[in-house]
Nucleic acid binder design. Sequence first.
DNA 1: CTTCTGCGTTCGGAACTACCGAACGCTATG
DNA 2: CATAGCGTTCGGTAGTTCCGAACGCAGAAG
Lengths: 273, 273
Amino acid sequence: MIPNDLPNDRYRVKSLERALDVIDALSKAGPDGMSVSEIANALKMSKSATFSTLQTLLSRRFLADKGVGATRRYRLGMAFARLGDQVVSETALRDLAMPVLRRLTAETGLTARAAILDDGYAISVGKVDGPGTIRIAQYLGRRELPHATGVGKAILAALPQESVRQIAETNGLPLRTPNTIGDIESLLTELERIYERGYAVDDEEDTLGVLCIGANVFEHGGNCAGAISITGLKQEIRADSVAEFGAIVRRHADELSQELGGPTHEETRKSRD
Amino acid sequence: MIPNDLPNDRYRVKSLERALDVIDALSKAGPDGMSVSEIANALKMSKSATFSTLQTLLSRRFLADKGVGATRRYRLGMAFARLGDQVVSETALRDLAMPVLRRLTAETGLTARAAILDDGYAISVGKVDGPGTIRIAQYLGRRELPHATGVGKAILAALPQESVRQIAETNGLPLRTPNTIGDIESLLTELERIYERGYAVDDEEDTLGVLCIGANVFEHGGNCAGAISITGLKQEIRADSVAEFGAIVRRHADELSQELGGPTHEETRKSRD
DNA sequence: CTTCTGCGTTCGGAACTACCGAACGCTATG
DNA sequence: CATAGCGTTCGGTAGTTCCGAACGCAGAAG
């Protein structure tokens, strides 16, 4: 299911891996959760082993249970809510990005957010809503497809082709809308264009009616730390102002890069051989 | 550290419990994380057992590592961000609460949110921002102190004194501002007043300049499912309109209670012997 | 430059624990 | 009333996890 990055299977705790399998399974289940038997069958574990694992996670509030006796069901507990919030709050990019996002929102009137790449997905770590009444649902911590969003494409544009190909192979390139880029070659061409002009445009590629403009941020050492973006309804962004907004996002991203001790977009372009 | 609710120690997976200890330890550490030795010393585990646990969590992206060789450090990974978002999104109260929160925001012009009590903390599971330009940072999933917030006090008011005392003993009653209620007897008196009038007022008790009005929500069976609240800057809420807002929040909370199949506040008061 | 300390990582073997499969009590259903 | 299926309990064993020591390496100290 998940590829083994590490060659040494020896240094893995099997009973812990099973517990993580249980958590994964429950995360894919609905709000109603799963019963002991359902989990045991799905993961091909014995009922008793599954039961012990569930009891352990339950006693530490990593799971919650509902019902008793023959109808007892387990689902993910609030411990994850706390830990998830903590992880997002502690991301290095976040603290420095928040003031920049506020300025970006003030300047453009659009919702601004910051995201990082993790495990092949773009993950929002901070956002500032725009004053507009209609808002796009963008929860923190949510995993988004990098090939279909402004932040995602901006981050991919800073990666070597190899890495992009690998991510595309692992996650695929699902078509979210008719505008989504669905094949790897077109994506690489698009990433090259993004690299040249310094910002990415998601023109209804993830959600119809929504336009998003992102630019990548670099940390000390020149690695891409993530990206920031502005998001708005397509109808409220004039086509001829996209380039203007792109330049604004690029400028703020460069500011953020320098705060992180990294190079600006212009500097990375010059150092590219 | 965490009290054992279950009498049967037999059905616990020890190696999993240690992994959860590691996660807890890392959640208390800063963004820089901890090294293998630090964790091993803190939890009185051997370095090799700690190492195996870390490798397992790492291979499943539950942890992230930074640095190599002698300076390698571990911190919580983005898997928690995803799971946390999922848990919050799937909370039973949330689905029914969101439309109510939207109505509440439309009616009052203030930010509305819903929270539940879990493990002695108030946890936000849904929110709708008001149209005002200045917004109070209220992230979903964040743990807040129940004695210092509108939602928190509203929930506590529905609990037996015993439970409130226990929560106060476990978490303490930290003074967030000069207005925070810091001793248990004053808190119990305040909760009685909240119970009588049906809504809780947090008057700069958590954050200076911020006022919050909350009311509890009951589910089928009469248990308190959580609370909803409105939040605004104190300067934008006239003192003589607090009672009016309180009645509005109470009314929407009762609507929500009935949707959940629970009693209204008035009904619980009548049934109290 | 050398020594030394402390780090993360590796490894063999002993001890234990986590698992299996069967059995129990229970609820709901036919 | 019988039955099927659920969650939970339990004894014994096989396999796992853990310990302690050792290794290679990096940076600090001399």
